[in-house]
């Protein structure tokens, strides 16, 4: 048996206000009666109750393909974080292989491949004492620079011949040019020629001067700079 409803108000409510609020609650209850259910409500409820309700559990119980798909989905959903965690725990892998690899062409059958040329020995050029003590400080500096370039050129030529020797057909004769007016293309050809032929004779000072002059005048990323980059590497070490 349920207890009769009565309005429960805070203890500090005065008796007069409590009476007013209780009366108001009574008014409210009287003013808001519950509307009746429509006559066909129970029939509609029965119909709705009997209507098949789709549920995942029932569908999985009945359909094997759906079960398989759901299993796969659960497996993949679970596998993704596991794989991610494993990759994160392992950290970045070791050295990565090159994306593209150049393989030298295989020798034709019946043709014997030449044995690879032994790495050449580069002996630095050692000047005489008189040469070092030379005519004057400015000339000595230019001479020393030319010597440094020649030595670097010798190393580069040795590396060049080992790696690219004979791959390109170049005119190996030293050109007779006025280097102080040479174009970037001519300077680049001269560097290639020296590398290919192993010509490590001292580089004329006017050639080096011309290279620097053109380099300074050329814009960053220009064709001239591209052509002269090899010379600049020899110059700057």
């Amino acid at each position: 048996m349920k207890e009769a409803w009565r309005l429960d108000l805070p203890a500090e409510t005065g008796p007069e206000e409590a009476r007013e609020l209780e009366a108001l609650a009574g008014h409210l209850q009287a003013a808001c009666p519950d509307p009746p259910l429509p006559p066909d409500f129970l029939a509609r409820l029965r119909a709705a109750r009997e209507a098949p309700v789709w549920s995942l559990r029932d569908a999985l119980r009945r359909n094997a393909v759906l079960r398989l798909a759901a299993g796969l989905l659960v497996l993949l959903t679970g596998a993704v974080p596991v794989v991610a965690a494993v990759v994160l725990l392992q950290g970045p892998g070791g050295e990565r292989g090159p994306v593209i690899r150049w393989e030298p062409p295989a020798p034709r059958p019946g043709v014997e491949a030449e044995p690879p040329e032994a790495a050449p020995e580069v002996v630095p050029e050692v000047p005489d004492l008189e040469e070092i003590l030379g005519p004057g400080p400015a000339a000595r500096e230019a001479w020393l620079r030319s010597l440094e370039v020649s030595n670097r050129l010798a190393r580069a030529a040795a590396r060049w011949r080992q790696e690219h020797g004979g791959l390109r057909s170049l005119d190996l004769e030293a050109p007779d040019l006025d280097w102080s007016r040479a174009a970037p293309e001519a300077l680049a050809r001269e560097l290639e020629r020296r590398l290919e032929s192993g010509d490590t004779r001292p580089v004329p000072a006017e050639l080096l001067q011309r290279v620097e002059e053109l380099w300074r005048a050329a814009a960053e990323g220009s064709e001239t700079r591209r052509l002269l980059r090899g010379w600049m590497e020899l110059l700057e070490g």
Binding site: C32, P33, D34, P35, P36, L37, F41, L42, L45
Partner: peptide, 18 residues
Amino acid sequence: FEEVVQDMGPRLLGFFRR
């Protein structure tokens, strides 16, 4: 169950309407 519907139905209807 039908008795529950008859008893509580109007109260629930009033609840939603109000």
